[in-house]
Design a protein around this nucleic acid. Structure first.
Length: 212
DNA sequence: ATGACGATTTACT
DNA sequence: GTAAATCGTCATA
C-alpha cells in the first residue's frame, strides 16, 4: 500500500482547543474532490471553543443535541454545522472523547484548485475565496455530508501538519459571539498577521494592516 | 406547534 | 454603518 500524505495525528488533536487552534495555523486543509481534483488551503485563522463552561460554545452547559453530537466524538473528527439559514462552518474536534472541545477553521490561504473555488464562490479575488468560515466551506464544497468524517483516515478531506516554523500569531476575541457575556472577551481567536487571507469581519483593510 | 435566534455574508445607503 | 437573506435548531408550551 502506498504511503499516504502526512496527516495530523490523533495525538496532535487530543489536546485542549487553545493548543490545537494555535498549532493549526500554517497547517494545510486538503479536499479530494475527485481523483484528479485536489483543493488545498493553508490555515491562517482559527478559534477555540473550550468546553461546557464556554458560553459561546454549542456545548455550553453540557448541551448534547443532534446538531452538536459530533463535538463529543473522538479528536480529529470534523464537526460541520449549518447556520444563518445559508452557511456551513467546519470545526476540528479535539481533546478527549466525550469532551466537547473544538477548533473552528475561520480562514484559509488558497493554494491549489483555485479555479474550482472561484467557480463555487462566484468571485475572482483570491483573498475573498476562503476569508471566512462560511466562505471556505463554500469554496471547498464542505456541507452537512462532511459532518462527522474522520480527518485522520478520510480520503475526501484531511489536514497536513504545518511544516516549518510557527508564524507569528495575533490573538483577539472571537467573532460573532457578542451575546456570550464575559466569554465574548476571551482571546480565543488566532490568526497569522502576515496573511492577506484572514476574515474581514469587523475590520477594515486599514485596521487589519495596522495590527499586522 | 411556535418563536427567537444564530460560531455569516453580501449588498446597499 | 445598516440591513437583508434565509432556514435549521432548540427551548418553551
Amino acid at each position: 500500500m502506498a504511503k499516504g500524505p502526512t496527516r495530523l495525528s490523533h495525538e496532535a488533536c487530543a489536546v485542549d482547543a487553545q493548543i490545537l487552534a494555535k498549532d493549526l495555523i500554517g497547517a494545510i486543509l486538503v479536499r479530494q474532490i475527485s481523483p484528479s481534483l485536489t483543493l488545498r488551503g493553508r490555515i491562517v485563522e482559527t478559534e477555540a471553543y473550550v468546553g461546557i463552561h464556554d458560553r459561546a460554545s454549542h456545548a455550553f452547559g453540557g448541551r448534547r443535541t443532534p446538531r452538536n453530537e459530533m463535538m463529543y466524538a473522538q479528536a480529529g473528527t470534523a464537526y460541520v454545522y449549518f447556520t444563518y439559514g445559508m452557511h456551513y462552518c467546519m470545526n476540528i474536534v479535539c481533546g478527549e472523547i466525550n469532551q466537547p472541545l473544538a477548533v473552528l477553521i475561520r480562514a484559509l490561504e488558497p493554494l491549489g484548485g483555485i479555479e474550482f473555488m472561484q467557480e463555487r464562490r462566484g468571485r475572482q479575488a483570491v483573498t475573498d475565496l476562503c476569508s471566512g468560515p462560511g466562505k471556505l466551506c463554500q469554496a471547498f464544497g464542505i456541507d452537512r455530508e462532511h459532518n462527522g468524517i474522520d480527518l485522520l483516515t478520510s480520503n475526501s478531506m484531511w489536514i497536513e501538519p504545518r511544516d516549518g516554523p510557527l508564524p507569528r500569531l495575533v490573538s483577539t476575541p472571537r467573532i460573532g459571539i457578542a451575546s456570550a457575556g464575559h466569554w465574548a472577551k476571551r482571546l480565543l481567536r488566532w490568526y497569522d498577521p502576515q496573511s492577506e487571507h484572514v476574515s474581514g469581519t469587523g475590520k477594515s483593510p486599514r485596521s487589519r494592516k495596522r495590527q499586522a
